[in-house]
Design a protein around this nucleic acid. Structure first.
Lengths: 132, 132
DNA sequence: TAAAAATTAGTAATAATTACCAAATGATAA
DNA sequence: TTATCATTTGGTAATTATTACTAATTTTTA
């Protein structure tokens, strides 16, 4: 039960459409891409509202904010941790549908003096269209 | 043998000091932190020169540019791939001295239609000072 | 229905990074 | 060595993603 369900913040129309549009795609869009998607449904929404809501939704684990070292952050409508792959040719980002390697956290905990809580894996390579 | 050894670009004083100072530390400093370090040796160097050289050195695999989702990128004087851990308390970044899991690339290649070339792992947790 | 709180649109501000350019430096060849 | 030429630098301006601000609007609550 997240803060949305608990009514700790309102499900405004803007917030709803942002969330719907993001959950509709699996392309890990940037804030401006989401802005463009949402504007088709809601032409008067402002970019600031998009940013504000993406921030709030990701802070509350309803979506994920991702960083692949590009200029803009990307967003994922799926809040559960999973691995990603980034094409070195065109930059597209896809999910990698493989089980999380929980053992890695233990190995890292042995190798450091940290209390390890999680890890992220980002693969790089070339997608089908960029393999030539 | 990299482009520096092949004299494809010059080892200017600025470039040399930037590289030396970065290799001296294991703290994964940001561009402005490196700027501050280098300025102690070379007070008239400009921030643009620091950025320009960090970019050139990382493009040529002499150093690494790292991104932990913070505002500023970080740099690592060690160009060989290794895992990192980021403290959720204070933000410090340390190396994780454990072998690369090469098997992950194969698993990802089976799970996607990509030609996978590498992967990065970033652990999160709490460092000794932040464990209370 | 009135008052309080949250949210929005629109715009301005911030901050990291990149671009630009004239002057300086380093490499090269006569 | 010295003249030439490409590279690099310092200083500054521009760019760009993101955040902050604020008055107006919307939603919730009393």
């Amino acid at each position: 039960m997240n803060k949305l369900d608990k009514n700790e913040f309102r499900l405004t129309n803007q917030r709803k459409v942002i969330l719907e549009e993001l959950k509709k795609v699996k392309s890990h869009p940037t804030a401006t891409e989401i802005y463009d998607m949402v504007r088709k449904k809601m032409p008067r929404i402002s970019l600031g509202t998009v940013y504000r809501n993406l921030e709030l939704l990701s802070n509350n684990s309803i979506i994920q904010k991702l960083d692949f070292g590009e200029a803009q952050k990307r967003f994922d409508g799926n809040p559960t941790t999973h691995y990603h792959i980034n094409c070195k040719g065109c930059g597209r980002v896809d999910d990698v549908d493989m089980p999380l390697n929980q053992e890695l956290d233990e190995l890292a905990e042995n190798a450091t003096s940290y209390k390890v809580s999680s890890h992220h894996v980002e693969f790089s390579g070339f997608c089908v269209s960029c393999q030539n």
